[in-house]
Design a protein around this nucleic acid. Structure first.
Lengths: 253, 253
DNA sequence: TATAGTGGTTGACGTAACGTCAAGGTCAAC
DNA sequence: GTTGACCTTGACGTTACGTCAACCACTATA
């Protein structure tokens, strides 16, 4: 029993274009009717197509499937296991996305017509999530779980004006830091402003400031290039982060 | 304060190509330095890019985002809600995929070197899942939950030889059905074979056969075009399904 | 036998969101 | 004057097909 291209297509629930494509990339080569050049598919093709679709449901790419089909079962099983991990990760990602979305929606539905405020709240959510992803593990390691949670809590409960103040403080920090990074003078008034601004900036979210913790944060800055990138980028100088760390170290000595 | 393309890129964690692309499709138009033609971005651009990335994390397409950015908050919120449903559906899909994969992997790791058997088991899983997706709701409605579960259980526990017998029975059914559909003679011996084969085929998975249930199934065949498609396709005649239903109705009268 | 309808064939272009060259202009620094 | 970093505009590649377009094969009917 042989099938025409359309018969196989509707049998397997795919389009004829798909079968032609599979033929073209030699994933599922078709026999040809010598008389008219039509494609013909036998039982083996049906089985192979079924296997292809099977692997496809798990998100394998066609090139991968092509290789997989010629591989021993053990290799296929290993590939499936790898794919499983991949899918599990995707699902987890979706879960966090859904949580974020839910919070956003709740905030949006909270007030009748909150415009800037809701945008603001949304952004805070985002920043929190970003920050958690980027530094959550390290921060918890350095400060302990409770401290980090308290910090997040304070950030989440920042009022809009407080948030703007925090931004302003950071901007002032950048200005001063730019100066110090240019001159390199750690004894200048600007250096003191850098330290003060950074301390104030921290206090927006820290419940109890201590010089030791401040010093620990600077330590963290040196360990993680993302911090350096952030400060260097914002200030526009390649030594901004290093300068900041030096200033903090000096004032918390 | 204006940013160069690379500054904004690393600030926002995207590539310069991305920014050029956004400029090109007018999602995030850049100002130009009249002197040298370089792109320049201001604070508004930073905000807009942030919003773009924010919507993007939720899986919106760029064209959608473009429209969304000019929309009032209520519309955006509605879009987010819709997207939430979408994401939830995706996650559910992933969950069922993972379950299937887990069962497959368990089966593959079950035996030391099961080749055909494991392929067979995998296919059964697939068929079960497919069938469930296609007809689960209707079947449960028609037969009740317990009956369907029992049927699935029996199918899942079919031995390989039983499975092949089931296939053979179906093949015989197709042959006989083709004859009857061609002649249209419901009184023929072939018609009796059609009924018998279909009954036998059902009994592979039904715990207790009854003519009433058989008639109910035929009813379902007429209601759902997928059944018709399946039989017409397999037999190769456009009236195969209708003929089958007629035969069943006659013998279960 | 002409014709209409159905089903087959091979190109070839379009899709989404960029990645990745290639060829060449700009600018600061040495 | 010449690096080297940064910028520009094309233009092609990516995945798994969808969607024409132009043309051939076969069957049924007027």
């Amino acid at each position: 029993m042989t099938y025409s291209i359309q018969q196989l297509a509707s049998l397997a629930g795919v389009s004829t274009r798909t079968l032609r494509y599979y033929d073209q990339i030699k994933l599922l080569p078709a026999n040809r009717n010598v008389h008219n050049g039509y494609r013909e598919y036998g039982e083996a093709a049906v089985d192979r197509l079924q296997l292809i679709r099977y692997f496809q449901t798990f998100g394998f790419e066609l090139t991968t499937i092509q290789q997989l089909l010629d591989q021993p079962r053990a290799v296929q099983t290993a590939a499936l296991a790898t794919q499983r991990a991949q899918l599990a990760a995707e699902r987890e990602h979706l879960t966090t996305l859904l949580n974020t979305l839910d919070r956003t929606l709740a905030a949006r539905n909270g007030g009748p017509q909150m415009t800037d405020s809701e945008k603001f709240a949304t952004f805070k959510q985002e920043q929190l999530a970003d920050n958690e992803q980027a530094f959550g593990v390290e921060a918890r390691q350095l400060y302990g779980k409770e401290t980090v949670m308290a910090s997040q809590h304070r950030f989440a409960n920042l009022s809009e004006t407080e948030y703007h103040d925090m931004q302003a403080t950071e901007a002032e920090l950048f200005t001063a830091l730019k100066m110090v990074a240019t001159t390199g003078d750690l004894t200048s008034e600007a250096a003191r402003r850098v330290y003060e601004c950074h301390r104030q900036w921290l206090c927006f979210t820290w419940n109890n400031y201590s010089q030791v913790a401040h010093r620990g944060l600077a330590q963290m800055y040196t360990h993680d290039s993302r911090f350096a990138d952030y400060y260097n980028q914002r200030v526009g100088l390649p030594n901004a982060a290093a300068t900041l760390v030096a200033v903090i170290n000096q004032y918390t000595a």
